[in-house]
């Protein structure tokens, strides 16, 4: 495969590909998944990160990661990356906040 095909085909552009049978899988969203969806809508309403930027952000994860991460996992990682680029917060700020959230959950469980 010429390497140009890797850069000119987006990882989500799969119409017409061979694939297995459709399994009618579905699941009720976890609370965090629903919050993630609501976050996506609010970011779009305010044009902080519009829907198309989110799609592009998911594509930017690349084929391997897209294949490995479930749906809302892809979204939240895309939002983090786009937020860094836009200067909403820095990678360090996110790492610190995630540590804080982890500690808070641990405390709640211990308490």
């Amino acid at each position: 495969m010429p390497t140009q095909d890797f850069v000119s085909r987006l990882p989500n552009d799969i119409g017409g590909f061979e694939a297995g049978s459709v399994m009618r899988v579905e699941h009720a969203l976890e609370p965090w998944e629903k919050r993630c969806h609501a976050l996506a809508d609010v970011l779009d309403f305010k044009k902080l990160i519009n829907t198309e930027e989110k799609r592009k952000g998911v594509e930017a994860l690349g084929e391997t990661l897209i294949g490995k991460l479930p749906y809302y996992e892809r979204w939240i990682v895309a939002f983090a990356n786009i937020s860094f680029t836009k200067g909403f917060f820095t990678p360090t700020e996110l790492a610190e906040k995630m540590a804080e959230v982890d500690a808070r959950f641990a405390e709640q469980q211990a308490g």
Binding site: Y72, I76, F88, E93, L94, K97, E100, V101
Partner: peptide
């Protein structure tokens, strides 16, 4: 990823984006 979602949301709220 739930921790990440919580962290992203809380930072955006603290900074006044939403």
């Amino acid at each position: 990823y739930e921790v990440m979602e919580t962290a992203v949301r809380e930072i955006l709220i603290e900074k006044g984006y939403l």
